[in-house]
Design a protein around this nucleic acid. Sequence first.
DNA 1: ATGGATGGTGATCAAATTATCACCAAATGA
DNA 2: TCATTTGGTGATAATTTGATCACCATCCAT
Lengths: 118, 118
Amino acid sequence: MYQRKIPIDYECGLSVAMEVVGSKWKFCLLDEIAKGKTRPRDLVSAINGITKRVLQKQLSELELHGILGKTIYAEVPLRVEYFLTESGKSILPLVSAVDKWGLEFAPQLKTIMEREAL
Amino acid sequence: MYQRKIPIDYECGLSVAMEVVGSKWKFCLLDEIAKGKTRPRDLVSAINGITKRVLQKQLSELELHGILGKTIYAEVPLRVEYFLTESGKSILPLVSAVDKWGLEFAPQLKTIMEREAL
DNA sequence: ATGGATGGTGATCAAATTATCACCAAATGA
DNA sequence: TCATTTGGTGATAATTTGATCACCATCCAT
């Protein structure tokens, strides 16, 4: 999210979690993969606004962090499927919880932001 | 977190939640306030690495979003106390859950990052 | 041989967030 | 008068993240 020069505090769960999953698309990505969209091109079309390049970067970070794994099929055209590792699966409850909270909070935020925009 | 030009999608809970709480210090801040550190100067000394200015900005954003409220006491020197609103309290379970997950995941991330640094 | 579909990478620019520094204000006590 | 304490703001740099664009490779079908 924003901490490379300023190193991660491994003693702080919040710091660790933010490093791994705190960025614009990652929660959304995990959600889609959990829902069965496993191929890059499917993810690009499923996630509104993301570009190929950015997707690729986020996927490879999640892979590096051991949240995702991938399977490469020797087909033509090439087929690659990403999947959640055990660690990845362990975040899913959090993803739903965050999503749920966000939906409940949305009306309030909307009201506030619209009032603000005057 | 990173979405002003690209507007918030109020239909997407993840988008909403990230907007409100997805930034370097906010989870941490809510955690400390819940634990009783309510005054700015206490927060600065409680949270390792944050500066006065940044704290102030995050507090005022949380206040704007209706997550925090504040009470100003007409004392000398001036005393201000921030508190969690009902919405603010409703995130606390999420904060603990994220923290817990992060702590469980920390060893794995640490191993991976150290291996990577070679 | 040309173009399409798929997955992927590097360079670079734009945008957002965080950090730093200086500064203001009120009131108290030395 | 001057420093201290507390809360707060503005301007600007530093850092990180996300977006864009161009490109490579493989294999197939036309």
